[in-house]
Each structure stands twice: as C-alpha cells, then as structure tokens.
C-alpha cells in the first residue's frame, strides 16, 4: 500500500503552498484517479511520490511505501525505490525519451540500474515488456530511435520501460494528453489490463474526467493544492457533494450539451 498522510509541498520564494495537507492511499491492483484543473497540484503530488522534486522544495508529511517512509529518505534509498517499486510515465512522450539512444536501450534502463542481469537477459525482458505494452514488432521498434516512432508508440515504449522492472505502483502523469483520442482509449485499456494482471496500483492523473470515469475505481478531486472530494467513481459522477466537482462535471461536453 502506498500511503500519503498530511503531505504539504511549498517552493521557496513562492507564498502559496503547491500541495497542502493531502492524504490518500493507493492499494495494489487499484486504479486511483487524480483530477483537477492545471496548477491544482496534481503533478507536484505525483513527482513528490516519486521523489523527483527539486531539492529545494520543502516537503512535510509522510509518504509510506508498504512500511518504508520515503519522505526524508536518503537519495540512495530513494533511488532503490524509484523505477523498481514505483515507476512513472510522463505527459510528453516525444521529449521524455533520450533522442540519441535506441528505444530498446531505454526500455531496459531500469534493469541496468536495479538488477545484475546480463545484456541478453535484459534484452529479452525488455522485448517481453514491449510486447506486453502492445507495441507491434518489438524487436524492430526497439532498434529505432525515438524520433522514428509515433507519439502513441513512444508512450507505449515509456509504459514498457516502466513495466520492465515489475513495479508495484505506476504513476501516470497526464499520459494521454498529448495523444490522439483513439490512441487514448487504447492506452486506457492497456492500463486497465496491466493493473489487473500484475496486481499493480495505478495513480492516474488527468484533467479529463471522461477518462477517469472510464478507467478508475476511485478518484480524488484536487483544487488549489488541496483535495476537495474523494470517493468511488460512481459516487463522484452520480452524486457529487462539492460544488467544484459538479462544475467540473458540467464542463464535460456531452451530446446533449451540443443540442442545448
């Protein structure tokens, strides 16, 4: 279980706290949505979980992975967790991969860091992960460079790179935002399947409520660095308690709204 309690983040030189008193937990096998408008603190929360914030950020509260406390852990301890227990996929697949390295080399990166497998074993695992991320012809695509792949393929490669070390938790930060609508749906299906098959906890961050509704079991609504509402997706969408959540829901274009 990834448990966050009273997490607050503030950056020096800025008066407002980026994240304030956020508490939630993410179980294995569960897909938790995190929604909110841009600047609401979603990404900062996720990066905080992965320990990716700049060293000058002031983080208070507790982030517990199973029984290990991550806030205040040494860089070495954090590195041992990152990419192995908790993996992360980012918004921009085009820039999130190193342009001068082959895709395969980047998919197996986590194995290089966290295991003592030899090159062959790493390659086999990387190809298996790419196949699992539903990349067509992994052997051929792996030999290519990032600029030769499409956005959807790159995002699948990023997911494969995250899966390769069999993490318990996957943090997805707006991973479908830069993709076409049809590809978005495929990626959602893939995430659902992976979460079930691997019993993996997924934190799905998005500003798009439709995607959250389709994919997630529970969801958190964030605004101005705070969590304003929590609940199962059904509760949130059927009977939102907060005015803000209702406004967010109203903002979803539906077939009816066009006619109105």
């Amino acid at each position: 279980m990834l448990q966050v309690e009273h997490l607050s983040v503030r950056f020096p030189g800025r008066s407002a706290t980026a994240v304030e008193d956020v508490s939630f937990c993410l179980n294995r096998g569960e897909i938790l949505g995190l929604v909110g408008e841009s600047g609401s603190g979603k990404s900062v929360t996720a990066q905080c979980l992965a320990g990716l914030l700049l060293p000058d950020a002031e983080v208070t509260g507790s982030i517990r992975l199973d029984s290990q406390e991550l806030n205040g852990a040494s860089p070495v301890q954090l590195r041992a967790v990152r990419g192995k227990e908790v993996a992360m996929v980012f918004q921009e697949p085009m820039t999130s991969l190193n342009p001068v390295l082959r895709v395969e080399r980047q998919v197996e990166e986590a194995l290089r860091i966290h295991t003592h497998l030899n090159a062959r074993q790493r390659r086999d695992r990387a190809l298996a992960a790419m196949a699992e991320a539903e990349l067509p012809d992994p052997a051929a695509l792996g030999r290519r460079y990032p600029h030769q792949l499409s956005g959807g393929q790159l995002q699948r490669a990023m997911i494969a790179a995250a899966l390769v070390s069999e993490p318990k938790y996957l943090l997805c930060d707006e991973i479908t935002t830069a993709l076409d609508v049809t590809v978005q749906v495929q990626i959602l299906d893939l995430l659902g399947k992976l979460s079930r098959e691997r019993n993996m906890g997924v934190l799905f961050i998005s500003h798009d409520l439709r995607l959250v509704k389709k994919l997630c079991h529970r969801a958190l609504v964030m605004r101005g660095g705070r969590i304003v509402e929590t609940g199962t997706v059904e509760e949130l969408f059927q009977a939102p308690r907060e005015a803000y959540t209702r406004r967010l829901l109203d903002a979803i274009p539906t077939r009816d709204s066009k006619l109105r």
């Binding site: 590195r79 993996a87 980012f90 921009e92 820039t95 991969l97 990166e109 990023m158």
Partner: peptide, 14 residues
C-alpha cells in the same frame, strides 16, 4: 533541464 533526464531519474538512475 530536458524531460528525458526526469525520466532517467524516475527509473532510479544516479
């Protein structure tokens, strides 16, 4: 400052 550096960090690279 590029994104791929953040990716590498998220994999646990030193």
């Amino acid at each position: 400052g590029q994104d791929y550096v953040r990716t590498a960090r998220s994999r646990g690279a030193s």
